[in-house]
């Protein structure tokens, strides 16, 4: 799931400088699961902002709400107040929520309380690590489930580089070399032949090379949208 971390409070206060009344909006999706942007964290952020405002003698009122997700229009009906009555919405959602809400409420600044960082998995209670880069063309079938895009600092696709030292990456010595892991695992599974197979060049249009990506499921679109998608 998407992992996001709270921005430093000072940075947020700077963003809120022109505001007097702000809505701290939590999200019940990924950021609740990684315990950084749920309703509780929105409430805590609100207290931090009020305390800081009091200290700095700022005129800042902060209210709190939370919806199931900020990346679907339907959940917006559950908002307790109209966001347009605020000077800004301080969203604790990932960038998807911030961006989407900005489009839904063009008349209100929707500000990010979070830095969205990575797609991650929960390796231990309280610990999430990056596992995926959303490259759009998954090769994990041939790399024993280890992602060369996410787990290699250089996102190399054709094997190990010359910088590996004792299984660690030259870019970040605390990081295991992704390709080293892939090689060892394939060897363990007796599937090193995967590395010898010649595969067609990667289509980077599936990644950022193709611009902003979208998924359209025709079975779910309204008829006029299906037509649009085809064009």
């Amino acid at each position: 799931m998407i992992v996001a971390e709270r921005k430093p409070l000072d940075e947020i206060l700077n963003m809120l400088a022109p505001c007097k009344r702000v809505l701290a909006l939590g999200c019940g999706g990924c950021v609740s699961v990684c315990l950084t942007g749920g309703e509780k964290q929105a409430a805590e952020l609100a207290v931090q902002l009020r305390l800081a405002a009091r200290r700095k003698k700022l005129d800042l009122a902060v209210e709190v709400d939370c919806i199931t997700r900020q990346c679907d229009r339907e959940f917006l009906t559950n908002l307790k107040q109209d966001p347009r009555t605020f000077d800004a919405v301080l969203s604790l959602a990932c960038g998807c929520g911030v961006g989407f809400l900005s489009e839904q409420y063009p008349d209100v600044p929707v500000l990010p309380a979070m830095n969205t960082t990575f797609y991650g998995s929960n390796t231990a209670p309280g610990v999430w690590e990056e596992y995926c880069r959303g490259c759009g063309d998954c090769v994990l079938a041939w790399t024993a489930g280890i992602c060369p895009v996410a787990k290699c600092s250089k996102s190399l696709l054709n094997g190990i580089c010359g910088g590996t030292k004792d299984g660690k990456c030259e870019v970040n010595p605390d990081m295991e070399c992704g390709w080293s892991r892939i090689y060892d695992r394939l060897a363990e599974l007796g599937r090193l032949d995967e590395m010898r197979k010649l595969r067609p060049p990667r289509d980077y249009r599936k990644d950022r090379g193709g611009g902003v990506r979208r998924l359209v499921l025709a079975s779910m679109t309204a008829d006029d949208q299906t037509q649009e998608a085809k064009e």
Binding site: L9, Q48, L49, R55
Partner: peptide, 8 residues
């Protein structure tokens, strides 16, 4: 930590 961020 949260309080320190807020200046307390």
């Amino acid at each position: 930590e949260m309080l320190a961020e807020a200046g307390l």
